[in-house]
Amino acid sequence: MTGNCKNPRENELKEERVMKKEFGGPVLFLDRSDINTDEIIPAKYLTEVEKAALKPYVLEDLTLPGFDPKGEKMQQAKVIVTRANFGCGSSREHAPWVLEVNDITLVVAEGYARIFRQNMFNCGMMAVELPAGEIEKIFKLADADVTCAVDFAGKTLAFSAADGRKETVTFTLTEFDAALVESGGWVEFADARY
C-alpha cells in the first residue's frame, strides 16, 4: 500500500479468520418497528476503519422503554427479535458489523430495509423474516429470559424462555441467501464464481 496508512486488518492477518458464523443464544427483544441504521450505529462513528472499534457504540441512539444499550441484556445477546422494517435508512454496513462484533449474528423480524438485509447475508449473517403473527408469538415470551436455538439445515428457530415456555417457528431463506450464509458471505461466493 502506498503512503503510511496502517492496514486496519493488520491484526486479523495474524489469525485465521472464522469465515462461517455461529447462530443462536440469548435473545434481545426490541419492540418497535422502523429501527433505523442511525439508531443501530450513529454516523459520527463512521470515521472508524476497523469493525472492532465500533463495538461500544451498538444501538447507542436507540431509546426504547426498558432498553439500555450498556445493559446486561445487550451484552449477552446473540439474537435480536424485533418488528417491521429493521435497519431502514443508510446503506452503512457498519450496522451489521456493529452487531457482528457484539456476537449478534441473527436478527428475526417482520421485515427489513433491502440494503440492511443484503448487508447481513453479504457478511454471512442471517436476517430472518417471519409473519407478524409468528413474531408476536415470540414476543409473548419476552417477559422472561429467552434463548434461541437455530437449526439451519431444518430451518427452525426454537425459542426457550427461562420459565419453561417454548415457541418453535420455521423459516425460509432464498437459495441465494442460504448460499451466502454457507459460503461465509458474498465476497467468497462471488470470488469463487466470477
Partner: peptide
C-alpha cells in the same frame, strides 16, 4: 442502487452486483 461495503467491494473487484 445504494449498497453496503461488501457489495461495493465485489463491484470494485468484479464489476457485478446481486439483486432480487
Amino acid at each position: 442502487a445504494g449498497v453496503g461495503t461488501t457489495d461495493l467491494e465485489v463491484g470494485i473487484l468484479k464489476g457485478v452486483c446481486a439483486f432480487r
